[in-house]
Amino acid sequence: MSSPQESTQGATPGQAPSPTGIVVGIDGSEQSNCALIWAAREAKTRNLPLHLVTAYTVPIFAASGLDGGYATVDDDVIRQGAEAVLRESAAKVAHLDIQMDARVENGDAAGVLLELSETAELLVFGSRGRGGFIGRLLGSVSSALPAHAKCATVTVPLSCAKRLGEGPGSEEAIAKIEKVVIVGVDGSDQARYAVLVAAEQAQRSGSTLRIICAVQPYTGSLSWMPAPVDREALFAEIQLQLDAGEKWVRSHFPKLPIEVQLIEGSAVEVLVKASETAELVVMGTRGRGGFAGMMLGSTTDGVRHHAKGPIMVVRDREDPRQGDRSAFGPLLQA
């Protein structure tokens, strides 16, 4: 591994080589520490390089009093502090013996990470950060990244610390984790691509793939409908499509253990609950409603903000494996 100091000297967006492995956002907070550990282990599993990245902007303060003017903070001081944070972070995962480098980028954190996502395979960050001298790498920035990043993103909440082996009570927390990768579906093309990505993740980690479809419970909010909803018929139709989808996935991953669950409940609540014990929950960036009412889009944000475990958000992409889905049975039509 090249030392963080060497790999960050003079680095600005566009100058350093574009990362092609896993990028993790670092700001020295406990949240980014959780993201770092998860990202490093994932890099080990995938045999990919890990790139530690932090970004900052030099603050400018308006002077008060009779003498107008502006004062700036010394750029070198901020950069040295950022480099120190990266060195400390790199040391935490050095024992994994993975290819790793680190870089300090001068610029808006969201813009920096979005640019790096154009070549990275995966972008990992904590759910929120501390701001501080590095600026605002996490927090509101992490909320914007899944919707705009060019690669898949993983949000790792601070509540993952114990399951990652950090702090007292970690053994008990680790024991509760199932060897399962969960993916939320709603019948949309976006969800089908997310299923393929989740299946690859489960196969890579030796886990079971669990496909979950949540159907919004009937409430008074549906009283405007012209006729009563036939819940049994609705569930039967959805189950038929889920069974066909399961056969399709098995055709591409014949050795992968697969489970399918059709659950009545709020999609956000169902997936947040599942995140407590799952290795990973995978979702698409957006959906179209579909047979579950609404699964992705705003639901993805709701799950990410309340999840108890890592959440992967997958960008919608065309995949040739989707071309034979209709051969296995009914699917939701546009």
Rank of each mutant, 00 (worst) to 15 (best):
I22L: 00
M100E: 01
Q333I: 12
I78K: 05
V303Y: 00
Q9V: 15
G323N: 13
T285G: 14
A149Q: 01
E118H: 09
L196S: 11
V124Q: 10
G131A: 10
I37S: 04
S266G: 14
P4I: 04
E166S: 13
E166L: 15
F253W: 09
V58N: 05
E83M: 10
L123M: 01
A175S: 15
V141H: 01
S143T: 12
R136N: 08
D27I: 03
M295N: 13
S326Y: 02
D316M: 13
R317M: 11
R317A: 08
Q31E: 12
P226Y: 00
G25I: 01
A327V: 11
A149K: 01
M294N: 06
A267N: 09
P17Y: 08
G139I: 10
L145W: 01
G167R: 01
T299P: 00
D189F: 06
H306W: 12
V303A: 00
L116I: 02
V141G: 00
D74M: 04
V185E: 06
V272A: 09
E279C: 03
S266Q: 05
V154S: 03
G129D: 04
E42M: 03
Y218D: 10
S2Q: 15
Q239S: 14
R192I: 04
T277H: 14
V195I: 15
Y70W: 13
A84F: 09
R210P: 02
Q216S: 11
Q241H: 04
G309W: 07
V154T: 09
K176Y: 05
D243G: 02
S275M: 13
G289H: 04
Q216E: 15
R317V: 10
D324K: 09
Q15M: 07
R315M: 05
I311G: 07
A82H: 06
T153S: 02
V93F: 00
D101C: 12
G293I: 00
L137P: 08
P157N: 07
E264P: 05
S298I: 11
F125G: 12
A152G: 11
I238C: 03
V104I: 06
F328K: 03
I60Y: 12
S251C: 12
P257D: 09
P13E: 03
E83T: 14
T72H: 09
C213L: 11
V141P: 01
V85D: 08
W248N: 10
F125S: 09
E171P: 04
W38Q: 10
A62F: 13
S298W: 11
R130G: 07
D189Y: 05
R103S: 11
A102D: 05
T45Y: 09
L271I: 06
P226D: 05
R128E: 08
E172Y: 04
L222T: 15
V260K: 10
M225Y: 14
S159Y: 02
L196I: 11
A82K: 10
Q261K: 15
L137R: 06
F253R: 12
T208P: 04
V272K: 01
A35D: 07
G135M: 01
F61C: 04
V260A: 03
L86P: 00
